[in-house]
Design a protein around this nucleic acid. Structure first.
Lengths: 158, 158
DNA sequence: CTTGAAAATTTCCCCCT
DNA sequence: AGGGGGAAATTTTCAAG
């Protein structure tokens, strides 16, 4: 987890892989002046050192009937560790919760929730909030446009 | 973008690929009772039909020195199409903006912003908000814990 | 869809700097 | 330590049943 000292070549590789992890090593190597083997070696190291945490397929929600997204701010009754932990476990297990952040400010959590329709979202709010005595209040924003969606991390010159 | 009618096998493949797109076809096939070739053919089709939009490496922000995340709500002066479009182009080009959603409610946009440190975030707010006459107000929540971060879409029984 | 062969890609070993 | 080149192993792609 400590910084594995990435040189500019590693960064160039990551920039490429963040956009398309199926890019072949030879193509990446041609772009940055390295052999395919050298690129592979670096990629392997980036995986092993945890710089690359995972490689995933991004599925278009619309294509699988998941047509709605919501940004939900949640305020808890008490900001106790036990309450936080319980909430964490709950959202980790809930497929509707794409992302969950514990934040400063008036809200305690901000969630990205994805659902097929409004009915499904209401079912989510019930099981996640109303059935949870520790939730004081939550505010829902309906997403009208997913302008930019990604997990890309900025890499010097990216 | 029409629904490509995904059967339960396609869904099972997607469930796997959403977590690890380097899973080998033979392994997936063994799990769902299909040959490697059949799995490959389905994956190819899922890519071509746009169900799988891309396959990306997820980089640990901390590992590359990006230590802070922010949830920023933005309110514009006027909710005109031109203003919206201009803002879209701006955030698309900005590497610090990981995600941007156009939403209902008191805020117009919700952004996920990632930076190396507070100074970088302040530089971001200046170029994105203060130098933009159309931004009326913005609210920043500092992320203390990225409890759950992903783009995973729920697939019946996921 | 499956089997079996061909093509492509990744992985490993050794030598080099 | 880190890179290059080539061989071996794995995986994907293609053709035929």
């Amino acid at each position: 987890m400590p910084d594995a000292t990435l040189d500019s070549l590693d960064q160039a590789i990551l920039r490429r892989l963040q956009v398309d992890c199926r890019a072949i090593a030879e193509s990446i190597g041609a772009q940055i002046g390295l052999s395919a083997a050298a690129v592979q070696r670096r990629i392997k190291r980036l995986r092993e050192t945890g710089v690359i945490t995972k490689e995933v397929a991004v599925v278009d929600p619309k294509a699988v009937g998941v047509n709605m997204s919501f940004v939900v701010s949640v305020e808890m009754e008490r900001e106790r560790i036990e309450v936080i932990e319980a909430f964490r476990k709950q959202v980790l297990d809930d497929p509707a919760v794409q992302q969950c952040y514990y934040v400063t400010g008036s809200a305690d959590f901000v969630l990205m929730v994805v659902c097929r329709d409004m009915a499904e979202f209401e079912a989510f709010t019930r099981r996640a909030f109303f059935d949870n005595g520790e939730v004081r209040h939550f505010t829902t924003s309906v997403v009208m446009d997913r302008m930019k969606v990604g997990l890309t991390v900025p890499l010097n010159g990216g």
